[in-house]
Simulated assay, not measured.
Amino acid sequence: MTIASRNNVKVIGSGHKTIVMAHGFGCDQNMWRFLTPSFTSDYRIVLFDYVGSGRSDANSFKVERYSNLDGYAQDVIEVCEALDLRDVLFIGHSVSAMIGLIAAIRAPALFGQLVMVCPSPSFLNDPPDYMGGFEHEDLEELLALMDRNYIGWAHYLASAVIGTGNDEALIAELSGNFCSTDPLLAKTFARATFFADCRSLLPETSHPTLILQSETDSLAPLSVGSYMQARMPGSRLEVVRASGHCLHMTHAAEIAEIIRGFSDQHSGL
């Protein structure tokens, strides 16, 4: 089993600069289809599915590896190494922003810049200095709902993730994506996602970082973006007038323009 087949790696586009796009929890590489057309003419784009997601090799899933974000970061590193990549522009959605951060700290030469789409270093409230948006019991109840009513859980979370005022078809698509994932694999990734705390890692990378945040996001309050920007050297925060946790799907053209400007600024173009 090669890394490329294990992670269902696809390479599209052409150009000297390589973008690696990493999907969030419950998603797969298909979720990037709204953003990729803006970059394929002059960037090489690497898409993949984490083990346990999309069309990855589910037989490669090991609970002990994927019960925390380190295992998913290792997927990113191994995909980059298998393709002999260096100095990539890494775009990570939601939890993949933190997965990318871990990977960039562990293997800094692989990365040039980081783009974090609707990130959160911790979903848990830790007053008075940090409000991630959820109490511990809220997240435990969310995971318990997976056991009691998997379809209901999928629709509830998909609605929260896509956000109000956005295309209902996207909610249905994301809900269907959740439902098509093996519940054991999904719950393992969910627990790793919602109970991770990466706040201490924020100052540990010197890679230029773009933080893209929605004005209204039920999973990541505005204060989260400000918290991250204040603790990440060389980071830039852009708040987009939007609702929801999936800017790459709901506001792809707008964030593509911001990302391209950021990339050009740090590539000397």
Results as ranks from 00 to 15, higher is better:
Met1Glu: 13
Thr2Cys: 13
Ile3Met: 13
Ser5Thr: 14
Asn7Cys: 12
Val9Ser: 01
Lys10Phe: 14
Val11Arg: 12
Val11Cys: 13
Gly15Thr: 09
Gly15Asp: 07
His16Gln: 15
Ile19Cys: 00
Ala22Cys: 13
Phe25Gly: 07
Met31Thr: 13
Phe34Ser: 10
Leu35Asn: 00
Thr36Ala: 12
Pro37Trp: 03
Ser41Gln: 14
Asp42Leu: 06
Ile45Arg: 03
Leu47Glu: 06
Tyr50Met: 04
Tyr50Asn: 07
Gly52Trp: 06
Ser53Ile: 11
Arg55Cys: 15
Ser56Gln: 10
Arg65Ala: 11
Tyr66Cys: 06
Asn68Trp: 01
Asp70Gly: 06
Gly71Thr: 07
Tyr72Asp: 01
Gln74Pro: 04
Glu78Gly: 09
Ala82Ile: 11
Ala82Val: 11
Ala82Gly: 12
Leu83Thr: 06
Asp84Gln: 14
Arg86Tyr: 15
Arg86Trp: 12
Arg86Leu: 14
Arg86Glu: 15
Ser94Asp: 10
Val95Asn: 02
Ala97Ile: 08
Met98Ser: 11
Met98Asp: 09
Ile99Ala: 04
Ala103Arg: 06
Ala104Gln: 08
Ile105Cys: 07
Arg106Leu: 03
Gly112Pro: 05
Gly112His: 11
Gly112Ala: 10
Ser120Ala: 14
Pro121Phe: 06
Leu124Val: 03
Tyr130Ile: 02
Met131Asn: 12
Gly132Tyr: 02
His136Ser: 07
Asp138Asn: 05
Leu139Tyr: 08
Met146Thr: 04
Asp147Thr: 11
Asn149Arg: 05
Asn149Ile: 03
Tyr150Leu: 13
Tyr156Ala: 14
Ser159Asn: 12
Ala160Lys: 11
Ile162Phe: 00
Thr164Tyr: 04
Gly165Asp: 00
Leu170Thr: 03
Ile171Leu: 05
Phe178Gln: 09
Cys179Asn: 15
Ser180Arg: 15
Ser180Asn: 15
Ser180Ile: 07
Thr181Ser: 02
Thr181His: 06
Asp182Tyr: 10
Leu184Pro: 03
Arg191Gln: 04
Ala192Ser: 08
Ala192Glu: 00
Thr193Gly: 06
Thr193Phe: 04
Thr193His: 04
Phe195Arg: 06
Phe195Asp: 00
Leu201Asp: 03
Leu201Gly: 03
Leu201Gln: 10
Pro203Glu: 02
Pro208Asp: 07
Thr209Asp: 07
Thr209Val: 09
Leu210Ile: 04
Leu210Asn: 02
Ile211His: 15
Leu212Val: 08
Gln213Met: 10
Ser214Leu: 05
Ser218Tyr: 13
Ser226Trp: 09
Ala230Lys: 13
Arg231Leu: 08
Met232Leu: 10
Pro233Cys: 09
Pro233Met: 05
Gly234Ile: 03
Arg236His: 12
Leu237Thr: 12
Val240His: 01
Arg241Cys: 08
His245Ala: 02
Leu247His: 02
Met249Tyr: 04
Ala252His: 09
Glu254Pro: 06
Glu257Pro: 08
Ile259Met: 09
Arg260Lys: 10
Phe262Gly: 07
Ser263Gly: 09
Gly268Ala: 12
